[in-house]
Computed example of a mutant assay.
Amino acid sequence: MKLIGSSTSPYVRRIRILLDEERYDFVNLDIYGADRDEIRRANPALKIPVLENDGQEIYDSRIISRYISAKQGRDPLTWDQQNQLTLIDGANDSAVIMLLAKRSGLDVDTPGVLVFDLQRERIMTTMRTLAAQVEDGQFEHWNYPAMCLYCLVDWLEFRDLVHFAGIESLLAFRDSRKTKPWVAETDPRQS
């Protein structure tokens, strides 16, 4: 089994945590630099992660998680858990857009630019919803949605993309799970 990605990607990190003790090769790429051609060869959507196993290529973290969970004999996610993943992925996608825009030299902080206003709104509305779910105990079990939420919150703080005022329960959630398996080993700050 081979996982292609970047050690700083929250989408890749969640899969690395889910893989737990599974044996796999991790190909850590510089996805915006020298290794761009490798991404083109691995995935026509030009996204990471990519999982290769027994001749099968899987292109998206959500689909990869289903594949791995089935191999590990885990129960399928409930509809509520699927909705949680949709929220997490929506906030994550918007945050990636904001990060890439900043790295492209665009001013993402000035109000009135529709594309950036919409991303900020999506991120904060979603984060407030996720914080309420954390406070309601919906992420108590260390399952795939909790792993994804952990990776999102930690990555947002790592990249300094969100102010956590009013949603501090997300930081408390993250801090209470720092000792879970493969969390420390996949910390993007070690890259």
Rank of each mutant, 00 (worst) to 15 (best):
R36N: 14
E57C: 09
D30Y: 08
I63C: 02
R66A: 01
N28E: 15
E52L: 04
R62E: 10
Q72H: 01
N53Q: 07
S65A: 14
D35N: 11
V27N: 07
N28G: 08
Q72T: 01
I68A: 00
G33S: 15
R36Y: 15
K47A: 06
A42W: 00
Q56I: 09
G55M: 04
D30I: 09
V50P: 01
A70I: 01
S65T: 05
D60A: 12
P49V: 13
S65Q: 05
Q56A: 11
D35E: 15
I39M: 11
K47R: 06
Y59N: 10
L51N: 00
P44V: 08
A45L: 14
R41F: 11
S69T: 04
R66K: 07
D54K: 03
G73K: 02
I48K: 14
V50H: 06
R66N: 13
G73W: 02
A70V: 07
L29T: 07
D35S: 15
D37C: 00
P44S: 12
R36T: 13
R36K: 15
D60E: 13
A34G: 12
R40Y: 06
G55K: 08
A42K: 04
K47S: 15
E38I: 13
P44F: 08
Y32R: 12
N43R: 12
A42S: 11
I39C: 07
Y59D: 01
I58Q: 02
E52V: 06
A42P: 00
R62A: 14
D60T: 10
Y67P: 06
